[in-house]
Amino acid sequence: MIPKPVVGILGAGRFGMVVARLATNAGYPVLIAGSGDPRRIALPHDLTDVVAATAAEVAERADVVVLALPIGKYRTIPAGPLEGKLVIDAMNYWWQTDGILPDFTDPLTSSSEVVRDHLPGSRVVKALNHMGYTDLQDEARPSGQADRKAIGIAGDDPADVDVVADFVDGLGFDPVVVGRLSDGVRLEPGTDPFGADVEAEELRLMIDSFPTSQRGRRRVAAQRATPSERADSE
């Protein structure tokens, strides 16, 4: 049997712990890092197989790295050590909680493209961002179960998207491929999929409704505007 890739998680908050739990249950070796000394990470009693590590150790030892940080800290992600790594961007720019972050205000650019530009040597795929951590924890189901929920995925390399799709399936969800990394905007706050806890068919319909969503309307308006008008609106 081919061994499963080592999963590293940058971010030891509630979301990171849920991903760690799902990945461990699926048989993945898991490393998790917070913002400081790994000895300060309080691992729940059911995560005894998860290894608390530094961000540098996660970057060095993991095959797949999940970004589970507040997006305002994306510049602290170590770009050099993650060169060549498959990175799953599970972060969101949600102005209601993050405040206005100038790096993410361009309506023509998805947040994952900004993250990709910070990690130019990494293979960035968008996934695991649109479902809340409590739903992720409660809704995982075996493959083939009728009421299984879905997770959207967006990435530029089909092989990397396939790896992430297998990972999402292993966690307990049906993968739905949205398109290229730029299409990850269809999963961001201000769209129908954001916060949705739905099956694959309904998720696809939500993704297709992007042009009429709040985020979609902003993008359409920006596409029609002149450069100076776009600058004034940001």
Rank of each mutant, 00 (worst) to 15 (best):
A196Q: 01
P78V: 04
A52S: 09
A200F: 05
A90M: 09
R61W: 10
T134I: 14
T109E: 06
R215V: 07
E201P: 02
L47S: 08
M91R: 11
P38Y: 06
I2L: 15
L205G: 14
V66R: 03
I100R: 15
E83N: 11
V87H: 02
G172N: 05
S213C: 01
T191I: 04
Q96A: 15
F194W: 10
S35E: 11
N129P: 00
E113M: 11
T48P: 00
E57W: 03
F104E: 06
T54F: 05
L22K: 05
K149A: 10
I9R: 05
K149Q: 13
V87F: 02
K73F: 14
V164F: 01
V185W: 06
A165E: 01
P81M: 03
G144T: 02
R21L: 04
P102L: 09
P211H: 13
R186P: 06
D103Y: 07
D169W: 06
V6A: 05
A26S: 13
A12T: 10
S111E: 10
E201G: 11
A33F: 11
D138N: 14
P102A: 13
K4G: 08
T48C: 08
Y93R: 08
L86N: 09
T24N: 12
R123Q: 08
V185F: 05
V18P: 03
R75S: 10
V178H: 06
P38E: 08
G80F: 00
Y74R: 09
G152K: 04
G16L: 04
P158Y: 04
A12E: 06
L119M: 00
Y28D: 05
P3A: 15
V30L: 07
P211E: 09
A221Q: 15
M131Y: 07
V114D: 02
P38D: 12
H118D: 06
G144H: 07
T226L: 14
G184T: 11
P189K: 06
A150Q: 02
R230Q: 14
G16S: 09
L22A: 00
D37T: 07
A62G: 10
P78N: 03
S112A: 14
A59E: 11
D169S: 13
Y28E: 01
I88M: 02
R186A: 08
D169C: 03
G13T: 12
P211F: 10
T191A: 12
W94N: 13
D63A: 12
D63R: 12
A90W: 00
Y93Q: 03
H130S: 07
F104V: 00
R186V: 00
G144C: 04
I9D: 03
L22D: 01
T76P: 04
G216F: 10
D89T: 11
Q96I: 10
R148I: 07
F15D: 02
G195N: 12
F15N: 05
V66W: 06
G27M: 02
E113D: 11
K85V: 06
R14N: 15
P29M: 09
G184P: 06
S111T: 09
I100Q: 15
D174W: 08
S35H: 15
V220F: 10
Y93E: 03
L43G: 07
D135S: 14
G36Q: 13
A196H: 05
D208Y: 04
S110N: 01
Y74H: 13
G80T: 06
A221S: 14
P81W: 03
T109I: 12
R75A: 14
W94V: 13
D166M: 09
A154Q: 02
I71M: 14
H130A: 04
S112E: 00
V30H: 04
D135Q: 07
E229H: 11
D89I: 03
Y133Q: 12
A200R: 13
